[in-house]
Amino acid sequence: MTPVTDLRKTVESFWAAAEARDWAAFAKTLADDVVYTLPQTRERIRGKETYVRFNREYPGDWHARIERIVAEPGQVVSWVRVTVGPEETHAVSFFTGDERGLISGVVDFWPEPYEPPAGREHLVERY
């Protein structure tokens, strides 16, 4: 396998383990010194144990479904649809990998939906 294939499979395993709440399998996808960054809240988590705990303790009955994954050497981007009860949102995650194909970095973006500005209704289709 190539490094692209390895990291892509690691990211697929990461999301499957998160959805299954299989924290042992989730931890196996991560480098010991993984760094998780949330730019919108300006939070950073360092280390496998802390990152696993962050996810394990995250409140609510959330579920994640992969919409799309794009992979290239050393990095993978995933678009995931997340539901928490009746609420639905999307996340875009940028993963970097180490030489073993483990996740060494994750940067998450959780865009909030908003209403578009007036004046472009004639150009767009709303869905």
Rank of each mutant, 00 (worst) to 15 (best):
D33G: 02
V34G: 10
V34F: 04
Y36M: 10
Y36K: 06
T37E: 15
T37V: 12
L38D: 11
L38R: 14
P39I: 04
Q40T: 06
T41I: 07
T41L: 08
R42V: 05
R44D: 09
R44K: 13
R44W: 00
R44L: 09
R44N: 06
I45H: 14
I45P: 04
R46S: 14
R46C: 11
R46Q: 12
G47V: 03
G47D: 10
G47F: 08
G47M: 11
T50V: 03
T50E: 15
T50Y: 03
V52Y: 06
R53E: 15
R53Y: 01
F54L: 12
F54S: 10
N55I: 07
R56C: 10
R56T: 08
E57V: 01
E57Q: 03
Y58A: 15
Y58G: 07
Y58V: 05
G60T: 03
D61L: 02
W62D: 10
H63C: 06
H63D: 08
A64F: 02
R65E: 15
I66Q: 06
I69W: 00
V70T: 13
V70N: 09
A71M: 06
A71H: 04
A71S: 14
E72L: 01
P73W: 00
G74P: 05
Q75D: 06
V76N: 07
V77A: 13
V77H: 02
W79L: 10
W79S: 09
W79I: 13
R81E: 14
R81N: 13
R81H: 08
V84L: 13
V84H: 05
G85R: 03
G85P: 05
G85E: 07
G85D: 05
E87M: 09
E88R: 07
E88S: 09
T89N: 05
A91Y: 01
A91K: 01
V92Q: 05
S93I: 07
S93C: 13
S93Q: 11
F94K: 01
F94V: 15
T96H: 12
G97Q: 11
G97P: 11
D98M: 01
E99A: 15
E99Y: 00
E99H: 08
R100N: 15
R100K: 13
R100T: 13
G101S: 05
L102E: 13
L102T: 08
S104R: 10
S104N: 10
G105R: 12
